[in-house]
């Protein structure tokens, strides 16, 4: 039973990871990262059920907090850079090359 959830979580994680790698818009990339975190949550909760203790659920709570903090910080950064250069494309951020 729990296998399905794990597969789903794995899929979500893979989609997120792939998105980070191939998408160009910073916000989309960022959303993909959030998707990955949520996939983690799903895995935690599933495992929590599988192994029969509550630790996994507690961890999911903490992950949510961290994800929230990350959202706040991340959006702040992206919005700032967006305001400065009017583009949120990762490709446009290319000053740091040698």
């Amino acid at each position: 039973m729990t296998t399905h959830y794990l597969v789903l979580s794995g899929l979500l994680f893979a989609i997120g990871a792939l998105g980070v790698l191939i998408r160009r818009n910073a916000i989309v990339v960022f959303m993909c990262v959030e998707l990955m975190l949520n996939a983690c949550n799903l895995a935690f909760v599933t495992f929590s059920r599988q192994v029969g203790n509550l630790e996994g659920q507690v961890i999911a709570f903490f992950v949510m907090v961290v994800a929230a903090a990350e959202v706040v910080v991340g959006l702040a950064i992206i919005v700032t850079i967006f305001r400065t250069r009017r583009s949120a494309s990762v490709d446009d951020a290319n000053l740091l090359k040698y």
Binding site: F61, M64, V65, A68, A69, V71, V72, L75, A76, V79
Partner: peptide, 23 residues
């Protein structure tokens, strides 16, 4: 508008706080 973004961020923070308050 950026303003809504800030509201959204604040909401997330406090919503998470609620999540901790309930248990």
């Amino acid at each position: 508008p950026l303003k809504y973004m800030i509201t959204a961020m604040l909401f997330i923070v406090f919503d998470i706080e609620i999540i901790f308050l309930y248990p």
